[in-house]
Write a protein that binds this DNA or RNA. Sequence first.
DNA 1: TGCCAGGCCCTCTTTAGGGCCTT
Length: 208
Amino acid sequence: MELVAVIDFETTGLSPAQGDRATEIAAVLLRDGKVVDHYQSLMNCGVAIPSYIEELTGISTAMVRQAPPAAEVMRQVADFVGSHPLVAHNASFDCKFWDAELARIDRRRHQEFACSMLLARRLLPQAPSHKLGVLVDFARLPVAGRAHRALADAQMAASLLSYLEDELRRRYKLREVSHELLRKIQKAPRSQLDQCLERHQRGGLAAR
DNA sequence: TGCCAGGCCCTCTTTAGGGCCTT
């Protein structure tokens, strides 16, 4: 598979539209199931961290006040990621913050997101839940560090993505699993997953 | 004062409701 960037944000809440801001970002570059590089930084967005968020993430107002400005961090991570396809766990969440924080520095996203949670719902319907930590435990993947810190979560999402790609290759005898195929699968109705992959195989894309 | 997201997905559905998942 081509190089992809798996990202994870820690934030002050759930919605940039409601004024929530990013407090930490991590991106790991994944190629053929191996992490080849990573970026991580706390970021100072100039707002206080709600106490329940500090309890969840361990990230305090004092910590982000000592961090580089959010604009500087976003420029760095956007340059680090470049034009590589993006992946996140529950990507709709990270996509909102990625786009909102980029907009603040007058930059725009030029690539699509794939979502490891939507893929896991289709490929691992038997998992007890589709939270990142539960899936990592279910698939017996290594725990990268403290949950709800950006780098650990990005590394675990990358491990999960590799596991899901292996499952796709094994079950459907695919030579290669592209980002484009992941996006097709995550959009396919669960009941039509097999038909989706059969169409893909017939199209010859699997052998490329 | 009270409330505060949003997309996905299932079902006792589709003229809807509610749980899941992210912080």
